[in-house]
Structure formats: C-alpha cells, structure tokens
Amino acid sequence: MTTEELKAIKVDKSVDARGTSCPGPLLAAKKAIGQIEKGQIMEVLSADEGTKRDIPKWCNKKGYEYLGTVEESGFFRIFLRK
C-alpha cells in the first residue's frame, strides 16, 4: 500500500509502544493481536528502529498481512491485517 493509502486507513486497533525498546514493541503487538478479529487492521507505533523489520518478519511467520510502514517525526506507524 502507498503511504497515502496507509495514512487514510481506518485501524481497528492502535498499539502505542513508543515508550519501550526492543523487544517491547513486538511483545506489545503480540499481546494486542489477540484482541482483534481476523481481517481487522492494527497499527503499531514504535520509536525503535528495529521494529520496522521485526513486525514484517513476525507477520510472515504468524500468517498476518504486513501492509506497510509510515515514518512520522521520531517514530514509525507499522500496519498489519490479522
């Protein structure tokens, strides 16, 4: 998806993990994914550079669809569909 499409997307769950460092954002995503239904969309907010690569790999292993990442000022918004 393009950055514009991602920015316009309606998320079902937003996880703010900006106060944690690796592996905090990944664990926050793991905890939150159980709270949404299959097909719903979640975003993970992280200020940790490694999360940009961790979440796509995690999605691939767990069977979730990684949608893309939007870089904001000082953090990332990482989108996925369960």
Binding site: C22, P23, G24, L26, A29, K30, W58
Partner: peptide, 8 residues
C-alpha cells in the same frame, strides 16, 4: 526470550 515469546 522476548523474541521467542512473540513467535510462540
């Protein structure tokens, strides 16, 4: 361990 936990 956090990484392992994320991947069950």
């Amino acid at each position: 361990l956090g990484g392992a936990a994320a991947e069950d």
